[in-house]
C-alpha cells in the first residue's frame, strides 16, 4: 500500500506543523507549515517519491469535496448577515475588479522591465 505510506507522510508533516506552531506561537495554520516543509523536503531530495504522489494526488483531486461542508454553511447564515449585504457584495465585486487590474498592470510593467535589463 504505497498510498498509505504517503498518507502517513502527509499526516506526519501536518503534526510537525502543529508542534512548530505550538512552540513558536506563530499565527499560521499547521497545514501551511506542513506544506512548506514538504516542498522543502522534496527540493532537497530532488524528486517526488511514488508513495507520496499516490496519496497526494487523490487528496488534491478531492479538495473540492472536502471544502463542501463549509460552503453549504453559507446558506444557513444568510439571515445573520442581513444589513451587511451591500458592504460584502461591494467589497467582493469592486475589490476583485481593482485587484485584477492591479495584478495585470503591475506584472506587465515588471516583466517588461526585466526583459529590458
Amino acid at each position: 500500500m504505497p498510498a498509505l505510506n504517503g498518507l502517513l507522510w502527509l499526516i506526519s508533516y501536518w503534526l510537525i506543523g502543529e508542534v512548530v506552531i505550538h512552540f513558536s506561537g506563530l499565527p499560521i495554520s499547521s497545514g501551511v507549515v506542513g506544506m512548506l516543509l514538504l516542498c522543502t523536503t522534496l527540493a532537497v531530495i530532488g524528486r517526488v517519491p511514488a508513495s507520496l504522489a499516490a496519496a497526494a494526488q487523490p487528496l488534491i483531486a478531492l479538495l473540492a469535496m472536502l471544502i463542501m461542508p463549509g460552503v453549504v454553511g453559507v446558506f444557513f447564515i444568510l439571515n445573520e448577515l442581513a444589513g451587511q449585504w451591500l458592504a460584502i457584495v461591494a467589497a467582493l465585486l469592486l475589490g476583485t475588479l481593482l485587484s485584477v487590474f492591479t495584478t495585470l498592470w503591475l506584472l506587465t510593467r515588471l516583466m517588461g522591465r526585466s526583459h529590458a535589463d
Partner: peptide, 9 residues
C-alpha cells in the same frame, strides 16, 4: 489538513 500539506507537491 493532510490535503493542504499535499499542496507542497
Amino acid at each position: 489538513g493532510p490535503a493542504t500539506v499535499a499542496l507542497g507537491m
